[in-house]
Amino acid sequence: MSSRRVKEIPTSVGLARAEIHRPARGTAERGTLVLGHGAGGSAWSADLRALTGLADEGFVVVLVEQPWRVAGKRVAARPPVLDTAWTEVLVALRRSRLPRPLVVGGRSAGARVACRTAAARGAHAVLALAFPLRPPAPARSASGAAQPRGVPARASRVDELLLPGLAGLDVLVVQGLRDPFGAGAAVRAAVRAGSPGAVPSPAVGVVEVVDVPGGHGFGADPTPVVDAVRAWLEGIAPAAGRARE
C-alpha cells in the first residue's frame, strides 16, 4: 500500500504543510505531482483528495497547504505571498528525493500559483483544475439589472494560463461544464485568442482543456477528473513497459 507522511515546512511568510503520498515500497516511481488548494475552505476538495490515489500507480502526490490556511485564516493571502510560499515549499521538497518528471498544479487559485511559478521551478508540466478564467458575471435582479458587488471588470487571466506554454511546458486544464469562472469552451477560446496586449509569440507547450461534469467544484464524483489526469499523465510519464506515444 502507498504511504502518507505530513511534513511542516517553514517559509518566509509562515508555516506551510505538505502531505506526501508515496507509492508502496518496491513500486516503480513514475513522477511527482505537487498540488495546491483553492482560496476557500479549510478541507481538501474531493478532486485533490482523489488524486492522491495515483500513488498506487507509481506517482508521488504532494498536497501543499499554504501558510494562511495552516494558520486557520479564512481569507487567502495576496498572489505575491502565495507565490513566495509555494516557491519555498518546492525548494524544500527537493530534499525529499522526489522522482521526475515534476508536475505542479492545483485547483482554482492554486492552479494560478502553479502557472505563474512553474517555469522558474523547473517543472515539466502544469495541471490546472477549475482554472478561474475570470470572475463570475454579477447577479441580476428580477428586472434584469446587474447587481453591483464591487467586482471590477471581468478581466481574463489567460495570460497566467499561457505562461507555462511560453516556457515549453504542457498544461492540462480540467474544467467543469457549468463553471461560472469560465467553462471549457471559454478557456479554449481565450487560449486561442492569446494574452491581451502581449507581443504575439507562439506557445511551445500545449494547453489541453478537458470538460467534466459540474461547476467550479466539479461534481460529487471525482472519477472524471482522475480519469482525465491519468490519461494526460500517461503521455508525460508512461507506465513501465509502455512506449511514449
Rank of each mutant, 00 (worst) to 15 (best):
V103D: 04
V103F: 03
R17F: 03
G105E: 07
E88Q: 14
R25V: 14
G40Q: 11
G241V: 05
A237H: 05
R178M: 12
S96N: 08
P148C: 09
P196K: 06
G41R: 07
L166G: 15
I9C: 05
A190P: 02
G53T: 09
A43Q: 14
H124I: 02
W86Q: 00
R244Q: 12
S42N: 12
R188H: 10
R121P: 00
S12T: 14
A55M: 06
A118V: 08
P180E: 09
V174H: 10
S156T: 15
A142G: 03
G40K: 05
L54H: 04
T223G: 13
K73I: 00
V6P: 01
G110S: 07
H216S: 04
D179M: 09
G38I: 10
A193K: 08
G14D: 01
A77M: 04
R49V: 13
G106N: 11
T27P: 00
V64A: 12
T32C: 03
L93D: 10
G31P: 05
A203C: 12
Q66C: 01
L163E: 15
H37L: 09
E160L: 15
A243P: 08
A198H: 07
T52P: 01
R94Q: 15
L163N: 09
A190Q: 01
H21M: 03
P99Y: 00
P224I: 08
I9H: 00
E29M: 14
V62A: 08
L48R: 10
G40S: 15
A50Q: 08
R149S: 15
A114W: 01
G40N: 10
D211F: 10
G122H: 07
G205S: 00
V104H: 04
G38T: 07
T27I: 14
E57P: 02
V75M: 11
Q147R: 11
F181T: 01
G144K: 01
R107S: 14
A76G: 13
L172H: 03
L35N: 07
A139T: 10
V206H: 12
A220E: 15
R95A: 15
R25P: 05
W44P: 11
R242N: 10
V81T: 14
A109T: 15
G176A: 13
P213I: 09
V89S: 00
A71F: 13
L98D: 11
L63E: 06
H37F: 04
V210R: 14
A85P: 01
V126A: 08
W68D: 00
E19A: 05
A16E: 00
A183L: 00
E208V: 05
A28D: 13
L82P: 05
A43V: 10
V104L: 13
R188A: 06
I236G: 00
S108I: 04
D211R: 02
A71S: 12
S141Q: 09
P224D: 03
E65K: 07
R25N: 11
R178I: 07
V191M: 04
C115I: 06
F131P: 02
A139E: 14
G72Y: 11
R17A: 13
D56H: 14
A92C: 08
P136V: 02
R22S: 14
L102R: 06
L98G: 09
V187L: 06
V206M: 02
V210Q: 12
